[in-house]
Design a protein around this nucleic acid. Sequence first.
DNA 1: CTCATATATGATAATCCTATCAGCGGATTC
DNA 2: GAATCCGCTGATAGGATTATCATATATGAG
Lengths: 227, 227
Amino acid sequence: MSSDAASGEAASSVEMHTAPRPDRHTRRREQTRRKLLDAARALFARQGVENTRINEITDEADVGFGSFYNHFDSKEAIVEAVVEETVAAQGDAVASVTADLDDPAEVVAAAHRYFVNLARSDPEWGWLLIRLDASQKIGLRALGPFAQRDLERGIRAGRFRVANKRVALFAAGGALLGVMGDVLDGRAPKDADRHHAEGVLRMFGLSGKDAAEVARRPMPQVPAPVS
Amino acid sequence: MSSDAASGEAASSVEMHTAPRPDRHTRRREQTRRKLLDAARALFARQGVENTRINEITDEADVGFGSFYNHFDSKEAIVEAVVEETVAAQGDAVASVTADLDDPAEVVAAAHRYFVNLARSDPEWGWLLIRLDASQKIGLRALGPFAQRDLERGIRAGRFRVANKRVALFAAGGALLGVMGDVLDGRAPKDADRHHAEGVLRMFGLSGKDAAEVARRPMPQVPAPVS
DNA sequence: CTCATATATGATAATCCTATCAGCGGATTC
DNA sequence: GAATCCGCTGATAGGATTATCATATATGAG
């Protein structure tokens, strides 16, 4: 096909619309980007956003310093990207954990227990959540919509009864972060997830007996971390 | 430096043990130190510790830049000092609020309500607590001992019943910070303090009726902010 | 009034961090 | 296998921040 070497002239206007990219260059590019995002995520989790330098990120990612700016305009930009990924992953996690549950109380318990357990099984994610929340209010912003939906569902079902929805949501979110923090410090008891869920359910108006029962139900199986 | 004229009987000075501080030098020194601490506190509250520069502190304090290092070895040192002051003031505040109360449930409610209201009436203190907590876990560390004592007292009195004390404490502390954050954002309802206290009491095992009743009791009068 | 001491001050040096840039090397095309 | 494209790379400039230091100012003593 094609003779005529596309030389000097402006010629090659061949690029049409999409230009799909099985290209290997593109693959390599995305690999570097991924390494940077993973490194940034790990460092943000370990030491917080404010205390992480760009050269630390490229070092951890094992790429050249200059590569950073091939993919992100600034530190702010990579923070934004990490936040976006994290929020998306949180959304998926919550959705998959609570997908098959009917009882609103059980949904709330499962969601809270999932995050408490996440702090134990994947401390990096846990720290990331805590640290991002400190600088970006991510926790409440990401969990908020889900939590609100579940709380309202429970109220409609007559299962929950709270004096004020907004206060209840922020209290529950804060409580979750607090317990996660203790888990991350390694000092929380082994079944902190159940105890915490029980507390939240009580706060939401369940009787002590009901709260204990729901919080004790077996957790639905969750597929696998996105990694 | 030159000249060692001052040598010899330096001790001749009258200062015996305490040297109360008739010295004017000392007074001036402490005044500068105080200005620096107040400025640092305000800035930490306004923009967080990590985003505060030393020249901002000296500027806000209206002292020369170099003066900073006459009083603190580093930024870390002044953060430490601010934290210490803050924790001490918190301790006093909690003690004075709960001094005259007998019912352990009412003590817990008053303490939580005090802090929620503090976020509204003195946002600077509120932000300081939140921001310092983000970088130093101050909130839980400072409130912990009081909260633990009150929780245990309530359990002994048969008023509280929790599955796990530690988890309950961290959940309550986290919930408080969450609600305070919402108040500081200006979006919490006016009576957030009562609603939050009610939620905490429920979490601690009070019935919905009892929790609502205790949370509604009038707050004991608190003397005056230390300023 | 003059000296001695202690504190305050801003200019400056030293350091750290971000963002840029010109060149390198692998990969693809012909 | 030569030409060319594209992302990778480290050195470095530019800017910001911290800590130091010599001097200025204020206080108290003689």
